[in-house]
Design a protein around this nucleic acid. Structure first.
Length: 104
DNA sequence: GGGTGTTTAAGACGCA
DNA sequence: TGCGTCTTAAACACCC
C-alpha cells in the first residue's frame, strides 16, 4: 500500500523529495514538475498556479541550489544544499534560512 | 517571445 | 497576541 496521492507535505517537501528521488540528485524544472505530477495527480487537477509556487519555493529557499545548466539550455539543474540534504532526508522539511526579513 | 528565475505582497494557520 | 511559516498571485529581469 500504500502511497496516497495526497499532498501530505508542503511544496518544500515535494520539491526536496523529487530531487532526492532522482538519480544524481539533480533535476530541471520540467523534471520536478513531472515528478510531482507523476506522484501527485492532485496537482494535475489544480491547474496552473502551483507551478508558480514551485518556482517560488525553489528560488526563495536557500535549500535549493542551481547546479550547472540544463541539457538544452532550458533552465538550470536544481539540487539540494549539502547542509539541508541531511535535514531533508531526516524528514525535516522546513524552511531554512530564507525570507529572513525583519518585519517590524 | 516563452520559459525560467527572482522578488514583493498579502492572507491563512500553527505555536509559544 | 505576536511571530514564523506556508500558500497564491503577479510583476519583472534574464536567457535561448
Amino acid at each position: 500500500m500504500h502511497e496516497e496521492p495526497k499532498p501530505s507535505h508542503s511544496y518544500i517537501g515535494l520539491i526536496a523529495m523529487a530531487i532526492l528521488s532522482s538519480k544524481d540528485k539533480k533535476l530541471v524544472l520540467s523534471d520536478i514538475y513531472q515528478w510531482i505530477l507523476d506522484h501527485y495527480p492532485y496537482f494535475r487537477t489544480r491547474g496552473p498556479g502551483w507551478r508558480n509556487s514551485i518556482r517560488h519555493n525553489l528560488s526563495l529557499n536557500d535549500c535549493f541550489v542551481k547546479s550547472g545548466r540544463s541539457a538544452n539550455g532550458k533552465g538550470h539543474y536544481w539540487a539540494i544544499h549539502p547542509a539541508n540534504e541531511e535535514d531533508f532526508m531526516k524528514g525535516d522539511f522546513r524552511r531554512r534560512r530564507a525570507q529572513r526579513k525583519v518585519r517590524k
